[in-house]
Design a protein around this nucleic acid. Structure first.
Lengths: 92, 92
DNA sequence: TAGATAGTTAGACAAACATCTAAATATCGA
DNA sequence: TCGATATTTAGATGTTTGTCTAACTATCTA
């Protein structure tokens, strides 16, 4: 069920994180440079995204590198796609 | 800015409302039959969806008929589409 | 116009959320 | 092993959210 995914997408900071990750993998610190919130707050957002399955993390030495999980993004898109083929607005 | 739309989508009841509306327009009362929450609560959800532009309402006599606004849905889909053409996962 | 029906608005409240500072964990380099 | 760097975990706090009951507005019917 995609519920967690949609909830994760509700916050603008988290959507921005996903947009940054779309351009390539980033460490938590690199991501933090783009926001005016504390590192613990950002870490919390990353945990939310990870919990929703939207990102994965992998430690590389001192850094933790975050990546987009496009598969889960696809699942969410799938939900939307059900709304694209509304067979002709009858009256309205 | 699609922020309100994403926030509106975060709640499972509201997503369910959209799914019902996808099959055809419904009055507030018809929608209410599908949920175990009070009518004021449902009305609040409908107001949230309306505020986000995801639905429109129109009074027909005693009833208020809700309809899906597929245009705004399309806008949200547009955001997702930016994530579909990730040019090949380089390393990782 | 009075009563019934459909729906919303107002106000209250508990749970969830985003944020912060302080402290803990993990890794690297000397 | 000690200190520095990177990041997370813990705990607290103010705001937002979903829900409720009670009261209000609008429309229809007789």
């Amino acid at each position: 069920m995609p519920g967690e995914g949609f909830k994760a997408l509700a916050d603008p900071t988290r959507r921005h994180i996903l947009e940054l990750l779309r351009e390539g993998n980033r460490t938590a610190g690199e991501l933090a440079e783009h926001f005016d919130i504390s590192k613990p707050s950002l870490s919390h957002h990353l945990a939310t995204l990870k919990n929703a399955g939207l990102v994965t993390d992998e430690r590389h030495g001192q850094n933790i590198v975050y990546s987009l999980n496009t598969t889960v993004m696809q699942d969410l898109i799938g939900w939307f796609m059900g709304f694209t083929n509304t067979e002709g607005d009858k009256d309205e």
